[in-house]
Nucleic acid binder design. Structure first.
Length: 566
DNA sequence: GCCGTTTTCGGCCCGACTGTTTTCAGTCG
């Protein structure tokens, strides 16, 4: 499966070079599209190639098929090598700098000989860049800002970090608008977001624009027009783009600004085939605006069912909407209980009773207390004695609380040889067992995880890749293989809702779904105010096309299709 | 570079904002 990633990154790089060289932008887009296809497709490109089916993939034509042929048989692509030789790689990385596009970068390279970011900063400082015709002080100022943002790192942050920040901005916007909504990747619930898009309806767009540029945390105003403004706020250097439209265009604008780009391109192509034109103001036949008040209207006029934002990635959702086969996506309200929670018996903040009452308050029908096993000492892992005491306390708390079932679970460590941290006689007495790797990420992680799944008491694998969005790479294993094995052994895969994990993510959930795997959505909470974050996991599940039936904890506890019951 | 029961050539989604321009290119989403 690594071949998918390899070829995807090569094509992405080819696109970078072609773009920099000022090649036809549609050729560049064709390569970027292909890169995305290979990255996201659930099939292994190697086996597709072996079956001679590469050129039957939509978007892959003769030229790209030949390049893949060459790569598979020789290990390299001649054209790629030639392109690489023509452009310093350090230059390509600079394409990520905001406000510095390929045109300007190429001119700076050709006229001033810049090769990397240090060179760029030098020609900015000595005024050479601003002296180039077509540029000027203001443009260079914006490029400087782009460099600053680029250097402070992370161009994308977890959607779970962004949402609480954005909530407060939305309060300011909603005060001065008739209607407002998040749009863009944050509405689609992508695991990470690069900026925040907000759409507002108002007859007085100036006051909405004022509200955003005067928002207390704004540190830069990068654009300020009559209907659109763009600011950067202190928190995470987050860029916030606001657009104001009239009531009649709300649906068209919301559709447009929610994206994704790939989804919109395909949608607009469909419209074109019907002699219609879609823009953010509506759907037009000639000059007549025939739809656009709601998103439903926009989709309906194209003979499509309304598509939930989480699906809008051009992964087959438009075809499904055409044929009436969109999935009935799982919703936060479907969740009947959270079974990955930590109490004071390991590294949680709250006691069992507090957790149970908070869960009941949320309307859950069951709650699973799932502390760490003994080897996770740093996380307060329990020895057998402590586990016994915890289970007794669960019984005691349960006897005082009606209306919610408190379950005895464990997050058991997968040890160095794949054995579990407790013997089977301990595991079998628990209501459920979640197994996880917490140490030795690079030591046979795949083998160990598979061995753990062979234990009949293991119901679920927690955070299956171990990656953290803040930067940790995760376990060294072949996740495809793990997903397939889990599906085969009826072990469920966790969708961990912690903002830094979101593990599994959408791409892996899609792969699991294709293999018939089951999933658990949980918070992995260590304090009760994290119960809310379940919606992040649900968001990932929805992006992975999951329905209620695919998710264990949408069932009443007696009906949860745990492995031991199947 | 890809694609095509109107096309094998000529399209490829569409528009706002900015800055440096005397009408538009570059960048962004």
């Amino acid at each position: 499966m690594n071949k998918n990633i390899e070829i995807s990154s090569i094509f992405e790089r080819i696109a970078d070079i072609l773009e920099l060289k000022g090649e036809n932008i549609f050729k560049v887009k064709a390569y970027r599209k292909a890169a995305r296809i290979f990255l996201e497709m659930t099939d292994d490109i190697l086996s597709v190639w072996k079956n001679g089916k590469i050129s039957s993939i939509e978007g892959i034509g003769k030229s790209m098929a030949e390049k893949i042929d060459e790569y598979m048989s020789t290990g390299h692509i001649r054209k790629y090598s030639e392109l690489l030789a023509a452009v310093p790689e350090s230059l390509l990385d600079m394409l990520k700098i905001q406000n510095l596009g390929p045109r300007t970068l190429l001119i700076a390279h050709e006229k001033l000989g810049i090769k990397d970011i240090n060179d760029l900063e030098r020609v900015i400082a000595n005024g050479q860049l601003a002296a180039i015709p077509g540029l000027g002080d203001k443009k260079v100022e914006n490029i400087k800002l782009g460099i600053e943002l680029y250097k402070t790192g992370k161009d994308r942050i977890s959607v779970g970090l962004a949402l609480p920040v954005v909530e407060d901005i939305m309060v300011s916007v909603s005060k001065v608008s008739v209607r407002s909504s998040l749009a863009g990747s944050i509405r689609r619930m992508r695991e990470t977001i690069g900026d925040v898009d907000i759409l507002a309806v108002s007859n007085d767009s100036a006051s909405v624009i004022d509200a955003i540029v005067n928002y207390p945390l704004v540190k830069n105003i990068t654009a300020r027009g009559e209907t659109k403004a763009s600011v950067i706020i202190e928190t995470y250097n987050l860029q916030v783009d606001l657009r104001v439209v009239s009531e009649g265009s709300y649906g068209a604008a919301l559709q447009y600004f929610t994206g994704s780009a790939a989804h919109n391109v395909k949608l607009r192509g469909l419209a074109k085939d019907m002699d219609l034109k879609i823009n953010e103001y509506g759907v037009f036949r000639g000059d007549e605006n025939i739809a656009g008040r709601t998103e439903e209207e926009v989709y309906k006029i194209l003979n499509l069912a309304w598509i939930p934002p989480e699906l809008r990635e051009d992964r087959g959702e438009i075809e499904a909407a055409m044929h009436g086969t969109l999935p009935m996506l799982v919703e936060t309200g479907d969740i009947q209980g959270d079974i990955h929670t930590h109490s004071t018996y390991s590294d949680g903040i709250n006691d069992i009773r507090t957790i149970a009452l908070a869960a009941k308050e949320r309307g859950y029908r069951y709650i699973g207390i799932c502390d760490h096993s003994r080897t996770s000492r740093i996380a307060g892992g329990m020895d057998e004695e402590k586990l016994k005491a915890r289970n007794e306390e669960i019984d005691e708390v349960q006897s005082g609380i009606k209306g919610i079932k408190i379950l005895k679970g464990i997050e058991v460590d997968i040890l160095s040889e794949g054995q579990l941290d407790y013997p089977d006689r301990v595991l079998e007495k628990l209501d459920f067992v979640i197994a996880a790797i917490h140490q030795g990420f690079s030591k046979n992680a795949g083998m160990r995880m598979k061995k753990a799944m062979e234990n009949p008491y293991v119901d679920i694998i927690a955070h299956p890749t171990g990656r953290l969005l803040s930067g940790r790479r995760g376990y060294e294993l072949d996740i495809e293989e793990i997903i397939e094995y889990a599906a085969e052994k009826n072990v469920a895969l966790e969708i961990n809702s912690h903002f830094d994990r979101l593990d599994l993510n959408d791409a892996n959930i899609l792969k699991g779904r294709a293999k018939g795997a089951r999933f658990l959505i949980s918070t992995d909470l260590h304090k009760i105010d994290m119960f809310e974050s379940i919606s992040l996991g649900v968001g990932m599940a929805r992006r992975g096309w999951l329905e209620k039936k695919d998710v264990l904890n949408t069932y009443a506890w007696e009906d949860v299709p745990l492995r031991r019951r199947i």
